[in-house]
Design a binder for these strands. Sequence first.
DNA 1: CAAGCTTTGTAACAATTGTTACTGTATTGC
DNA 2: GCAATACAGTAACAATTGTTACAAAGCTTG
Lengths: 210, 210
Amino acid sequence: MIKEIKNKYGHLFEDELLEEINQVGTFKEIPEGFELIKPGSYIKSMPLIISGAIKVLREDNDGDELLLYFLEQGDTCAMTLSCCLGHHKSEIKAIAETDTKLVMIPIEKMEEWTTKYKSWRTFVFSSYHKRLVETIETIDSIAFLNMDDRLLKYLKDKTKISHAKIINTTHQQIAYDLHTSRVVISRLLKKLEKKSVVKLNRNNIEVLEM
Amino acid sequence: MIKEIKNKYGHLFEDELLEEINQVGTFKEIPEGFELIKPGSYIKSMPLIISGAIKVLREDNDGDELLLYFLEQGDTCAMTLSCCLGHHKSEIKAIAETDTKLVMIPIEKMEEWTTKYKSWRTFVFSSYHKRLVETIETIDSIAFLNMDDRLLKYLKDKTKISHAKIINTTHQQIAYDLHTSRVVISRLLKKLEKKSVVKLNRNNIEVLEM
DNA sequence: CAAGCTTTGTAACAATTGTTACTGTATTGC
DNA sequence: GCAATACAGTAACAATTGTTACAAAGCTTG
């Protein structure tokens, strides 16, 4: 494990902290589609992402969903952080977007490391900042963009996250993520295909233009 | 100043920290409508709010606005926090919603106090958590509610923040905050008046039902 | 108090998004 | 291979929200 942690987090943390992470952390490999966090649940450890990607969603009482942002290598989940520290319930849902490798850190270490390591404090604060900024950018999309531009941004984000031009998903799944209906997505995707921005197939979308 | 700080923050901070805040902080009285933070500006100090309320808005490149949340006594601005720590530009705009009293803390103290005081760390983390949760609740409103319910929520929030049944504002101003047009707000307010939820006057709205 | 500005009311219409319904075509499981 | 299921295409229509235009009422200032 130590090699992968050093590789992804070596530039952020001092050796002593890396060693501690190696000792107390649990290495996990998560398959695509696995639900890491359920809304309303309590969280006992926080993830440091080594590789892959995690999709973070908001879910309301009626089961309506909305994609908030993706987490990648070097990221951690700010909601988990604050849930750990404040002992709050989870406000969100997290699902592995691709096969993902991560290290789980027990929450007891959080407070300890925050006192002990400046690099840890910087990491935690910068994670909060990134998440707050990304959440606000999500607000930008919903508030200021029409559905066609939101869809385009969604497709771009997906290709970026998976490092591939082809997105394996259904129109229904996109509709869930953007909180709209399947028919609307199909309609808009067809428009994009006519403009040669995408090529549509069953269960996948090829993004041609960026 | 010490008395007001002790009054509002005494239960959060230890005496030693309160004394430091008293020494390095600058007490300020801000009139309603004053613009505290402009988008794109750099920030050199962070506010601890003693009394009053501050409106935090997102503004996009076209000058389109959207209300994110209100800050009250006991709150601080998480965006300011992370801008201070990470030396980022402001992503938001902040305007005094009512006459407001606050204490400005120079950013140099931030890192120092984070190492020195557990209560300060807890405060900073809990501020981040609160703001993240409120930002996500704003997403809930935009994504899951129709404009009539968003308006109702807006009116409720305003009365709560100002501790008054009468909201002094124009339809145009509400339209800016909710990022819609004046005509839409007038139309929906009229509907609410017909349902005896509000009473409309020039430059003010009386909220009857909660 | 008259002119000019701000604020609100309202109608008519346009654009966007959501809904229902039905079709055809892949894929899966027996 | 065949029935069941999942996925996608499309039309027709409804609901919501946005836009334009204009009128009326209230406030401000000379």
